[in-house]
Design a protein around this nucleic acid. Sequence first.
DNA 1: TCGCAATATCGATTTTTCTTATGGTATAGT
DNA 2: ACTATACCATAAGAAAAATCGATATTGCGA
Lengths: 298, 298
Amino acid sequence: MTFENLRLIRDVVHHRSVSKAARLNDISQSAASQALQEAERELGVPLFDRSTRPLTITPAGKLYAEYCRDVLRRHEEVRASLDSLSKRASGVARLAAIYSVGLSEMSQIEARFAARFPDGELQVSYLRPERVWEAVELDQADLGLMSYAESSREVIALPWRDEEMVVAVAAQHPLALREAIVAQDLDCETFVGFDDDLPIQDQIERYLRDYKVNVDIALRFDNLQMIKEAVAHGAGISIMPERVMREDIEQGRLVGLRLQPAELFRPVRIVHRRRKVFSDVTAGLLAMLREEEQTNAA
Amino acid sequence: MTFENLRLIRDVVHHRSVSKAARLNDISQSAASQALQEAERELGVPLFDRSTRPLTITPAGKLYAEYCRDVLRRHEEVRASLDSLSKRASGVARLAAIYSVGLSEMSQIEARFAARFPDGELQVSYLRPERVWEAVELDQADLGLMSYAESSREVIALPWRDEEMVVAVAAQHPLALREAIVAQDLDCETFVGFDDDLPIQDQIERYLRDYKVNVDIALRFDNLQMIKEAVAHGAGISIMPERVMREDIEQGRLVGLRLQPAELFRPVRIVHRRRKVFSDVTAGLLAMLREEEQTNAA
DNA sequence: TCGCAATATCGATTTTTCTTATGGTATAGT
DNA sequence: ACTATACCATAAGAAAAATCGATATTGCGA
């Protein structure tokens, strides 16, 4: 039983005529006749009495016609809702992300966004962390993805996920053979670190101090890409989110050693201006991202 | 979009799985997948986000699933109503009719009854007029069809139809060549009449008296069949409802001459006990018969 | 990296639905 | 009474749709 059939029955009841209803529904009289018979067979009750002209509606037919009207009304209703929903959901969402969110990560997000909002457009900008913040603050981006963000007066930081940090070593490094390691194993190692003024470096150094581990920081960079490169070239080992080095691990350029117990996490947050009125696509994107909050945690 | 599809969508939303919903609906995973895509195409909105596992429901999907539940609930409702309606309508309706309602007439009624109440049974008894009345009065029949019935304390007579009466003559009778006739044409003719105590004979004789027509009543019978036979055999002419002699006219055994102006009508009425509680089939039969009241008049 | 389970896609087949042509019938007009 | 007409049912072939089995792809966990 399709909606076309419901419409047909409704029209037959309303106009007291099969052929008129057929015309209204752009099908042949024959098709209408057959459809009605099939409907009656399916319901097990005659809806019409065709032995008179014009045909008369049986009590069952009256009941069923009422039902048809109800359903069709509800159908129009939901269609309208969906239409306006998809119409409103057409627009642009501007997302600013730090480099280390990763291209593979972002392509998944983009695919998912495209699936949900076929009429929406997602503009992604990869920026350095402070520029992400700035873009959001100046409303150059609707949403931002960045690590170690703290809410301010103008901007709010929502939890997104905490990425577990592991020890990154070159494939040929002695530690690369170990399955997992503890903090003490890092004592006296040569490190490639982040610039001193970055929160991630603060976190790492605090961690090492807590375990009374002394390291020699040979090089410092302000971005993960350079650190990975340095580690791969044997300039030292480092600590960074496992997630950002997955491709390097797969390709054998780096090895990630899980620190037991797992205590170090890089918090990545969603940031946006407070009191911002979101377009529906942006709201949708935000909702989509927040859905991942738990599933991608750790 | 069919109800099967609505059920499918509802189940997908409920179980967060296409394949499980497919199993529940006894179709292959492939069919379910295609049906969902078709539904999304038709609605113009993605209902699910299949890029995650388990799949997630889009806002549109949530909205639509709610609609599915509504419609399906309403559908169950109307089905139940129709079922109980057709169950209650199953039963027996006992109809007593005078002979002259005619077999062809009755077979139409039976066909119509069967069409409306496939589960109902219609028991028809052909009785002489006084026995019809008696059957109804004694509740041996639910409804009666008889001519010249008048309401009494126990039994009510409802109008059914008025059958036009014409002059019946044998094919070889001199009058048979006339197109139409007036009362005076019957003067001095030999008649085959009804028994003196029948209302129809009263009516006919009053009519003839009014037009000052003298006739010679050669034979009397208490039923139409015998009168028709007598007329066909040339025993005389008669006056009777046109409807009861249609077959005889078609077969050339009799000729019906319309009396100008048409004044003579045999009233046939529906009779039933007052204050009777009708079964639904009987009520349906009564309603069906009464619908004809206008259409078959005259 | 692999395996597993879930979903998508493809091609063939079966089912359903539609259309045209035709036949029967109720009703109105003459 | 007869015919015309509009209406509905049915038959048979054509068209469209649904479904299935097989296979490819993908998300995700071990």
